[in-house]
Design a binder for these strands. Sequence first.
DNA 1: CGAGGGATTGACCGTAGTCAATGTGGGTGG
DNA 2: CCACCCACATTGACTACGGTCAATCCCTCG
Lengths: 227, 227
Amino acid sequence: MFARISTSFAEFPGIFGESDPKGGAPIRVNLNEFSYKKGAEIFGEKEPADYVYQVATGAVRSYKLLSDGRRQIGAFHLVGDIFGLEIGTEHRFTAEAIIDTTVRLLKRRSLELVAESDAKVARNLLSMTTSNLRHAEDHMLLLGRKTSLERVAAFLIEMDHRSTAAGILALPMCRRDIADYLGLTLETVSRALSRLHDLGILNFIGNNQRQIVLRDRDKLASYDLQH
Amino acid sequence: MFARISTSFAEFPGIFGESDPKGGAPIRVNLNEFSYKKGAEIFGEKEPADYVYQVATGAVRSYKLLSDGRRQIGAFHLVGDIFGLEIGTEHRFTAEAIIDTTVRLLKRRSLELVAESDAKVARNLLSMTTSNLRHAEDHMLLLGRKTSLERVAAFLIEMDHRSTAAGILALPMCRRDIADYLGLTLETVSRALSRLHDLGILNFIGNNQRQIVLRDRDKLASYDLQH
DNA sequence: CGAGGGATTGACCGTAGTCAATGTGGGTGG
DNA sequence: CCACCCACATTGACTACGGTCAATCCCTCG
């Protein structure tokens, strides 16, 4: 299911912070890279959380399933994002590669060891957990109280903020993934996107339904009520 | 809006952990108690987060509002629960007393100071944030993918687990609060409770619709699909 | 005893879900 | 190289779950 790419000692940006400008040696730990084919599972819910992951290339979805197959995607992880960070012993989500993906991985144990002596690393762990919490809290509001159009608008705005090419979105995920992230069906997502297109708010690039140009962000934002 | 009750030096259980069995002096910090009348706001979203709170008596709801008044309650805080703990500088929820409530409060600044030198306190902060995150993640699944009956069943089970008197629930919150927690309307909550009553799963104690006896937890649990 | 908040229940409505048909592009194998 | 297949997306028709609106009941409190 995965291929081992390389083993190296390298930085794992985001946890250890920026390299020390005062000349201290940057922290280096044993880092592996692994590649996963589109659709491959990176780890499963309830599995022991021995590693922390960072997306090097590709994209990842984290989700929970109900016993009858209903799925809720809790987050998408794009290049640079760290995921699979658990404080308890087991993963609370299943993580899958949305497209062919390479991740860097780091033994949780070594991270904990560093955190014990380095208050800065410990604070970074807390701040990453907090930002996950903030995202989940905002997403509860979306899932509990927003209409389908508002959800899709909020999704596009979120993706726009996270994308490097401003105004142009190259979505790695299919409509079903978006739907399971927004608590909708894929048909409803499709209809909302068509509606936003008809309203002149977005265009599709060529015939690729996953490449989107945001033509009117202000109008788009007006469908994403802020709290 | 609130009345000052007392000022004292006392423990704030849950952050500093159990008192040290090895005879070390228990950590003591300046602690105030405040009381809030039913419905009173304890702090508002976007306000600076200068304090951390613990429910001494009563119950609290934390919520976000959309600009048109739609409300999503993110959590209920019962006796002993800590809330209002932010890592950033401002609150991400509004907190209100559901019934007459007394809270203990602690200056965030002093907590941070203790956390800097005491790794145990720092770890407790992380573990509390993590348990908030876990709750939010589970709630996303509920809000995104569960039916109204499943949501109400899950709510009752959650309250049952948190209540001391097993099998008997004395809910402090009204139907609207429950609805805004579950992403439903109060009518839908009421209908679901009536349905569960008709199914022989619960009874109301006397004429008080907020006191509930769980008669058949297994059947109740069967409506709350686990993931 | 009256007012008012909270809960239940019924009738109806509307948003999003379901089911199904059709379109389209990319990848594969003959 | 091209034909076929399959995954993905769109769109339409219909359904249904939960929302809306309204009437009624009941308890608490002043």
